[in-house]
């Protein structure tokens, strides 16, 4: 017997009608609006190089743009914070024990039920599962 991917149809598709209606409104508005011809990037000069200049507030870009140096620095902090938060979320156990992916020697490796899994998490025993 062969199997093949099938569309999952057991969901509730009624709220999806909102998305379809929204697309109808969008299409009706956009297709009736009129835009002038695109200005395009006239003249010589690399667009990619101009993006690089604009990202660091450097003069020398061939195409006009605002400077983005402050946004670049802010996104730096945001990315570091997000990665630290992701590590924190991934390594904290439900009992507060630190059993992260960065710990190599497991102290409770003799306990079979508390063995650290490869993803850093601990497999919960069946008895703890409260449904």
């Amino acid at each position: 017997m062969t199997t093949r991917p099938e569309l999952k149809t057991d969901g509730n598709f009624l709220p999806g009608l909102i998305a379809l209606a929204l697309f109808g409104v969008f299409a009706a508005v956009f297709l009736t609006a009129s835009f002038p011809d695109p200005a395009g990037f006239a003249g010589e000069g690399s667009i990619t190089a101009s993006i690089g200049y604009a990202m660091f507030n450097l003069a020398g870009g061939a195409h006009p743009s605002e400077g983005f140096l402050v946004a670049f620095e802010i996104i730096d902090f945001v990315l570091v914070a997000a990665l630290a938060a992701a590590v924190m979320l991934a390594k904290t156990e439900e009992d507060g024990r630190i059993a992260g992916a960065l710990r190599f020697d497991s102290d409770d490796s003799n306990d079979e039920s508390a063995a650290t899994r490869t993803d850093g998490g601990r497999d919960r025993p069946r008895s703890e599962e409260g449904r």
Binding site: A39, G40, F41, A42, I51, S65, E66
Partner: peptide, 8 residues
């Protein structure tokens, strides 16, 4: 608009 701000 011929401006690179959106791409950046």
């Amino acid at each position: 608009h011929g401006n690179l701000t959106g791409q950046v």
